[in-house]
């Protein structure tokens, strides 16, 4: 296996990050091991569980199925980039805390990415649309119920209908 290195430049959570990576380095390994952004988790490494979800130019993708070199020149948002600029929890993050939309926290970063991508596109999703949006993210703790409730709460809060 060639260990030739390729130069990449990716905007990660609003900051331009550069690196030298092998062709086979996955995006998630680069984020976790080179940038120390360990909030993005690895679950199955074959694109099913969604734990490694990040946003690529605003759309959720599996960072385990993507090579870091493929993200060269693109914009990546990880869970570490979801909080408000002052470091306070985002409405969505806070709603997950309020509705107990997580337990062990392992799938949570991917869930937040999927949910944030949904709310960015569709600020008032139906329950069905929420389940559809997180349908590619597996969770073994929650049975999804309080996750759906958390996303509904976030939508209501963003619309000014809930505190």
């Amino acid at each position: 296996m060639s260990e030739r290195l390729y130069a990449i430049a990716i905007e990660v959570n609003g900051t331009k990050r550069t690196g030298q990576v092998t062709a086979r380095t996955s995006l998630v390994d680069w984020l976790r091991e080179h940038l120390n952004l360990t909030g993005t988790h690895v679950g199955c490494e074959h694109g099913i569980c969604g734990a490694c979800s990040v946003m690529l130019d605003g759309a959720p993708v599996r960072s385990c199925l993507m090579y870091a070199v493929q993200a060269d020149g693109h914009r990546v948002t990880t869970v570490e980039g979801l909080a408000r600029p002052d470091g306070q929890l985002s409405v969505l993050q806070d709603s997950f805390c309020e509705a107990h939309g997580l337990q062990c926290g392992y799938c949570t970063p991917g869930m937040l990415i999927a949910a944030q991508a949904l709310l960015d596109e569709n600020p008032r999703p139906s329950e069905h649309e929420i389940r559809d949006a997180i349908g590619g993210n597996l969770c073994r703790c929650t049975g999804y119920q309080q996750i759906v409730e958390a996303i509904e709460l976030a939508a209501r809060r963003m619309a000014g209908e809930a505190e």
Binding site: G39, L89, F96, G105, Y106
Partner: peptide, 15 residues
């Protein structure tokens, strides 16, 4: 426990 998990600041064995 939740605030550390929703911000990606959990500390799992792989971290």
């Amino acid at each position: 426990e939740h605030p550390r998990f929703v911000t990606g600041r959990g500390r799992y064995a792989a971290d």
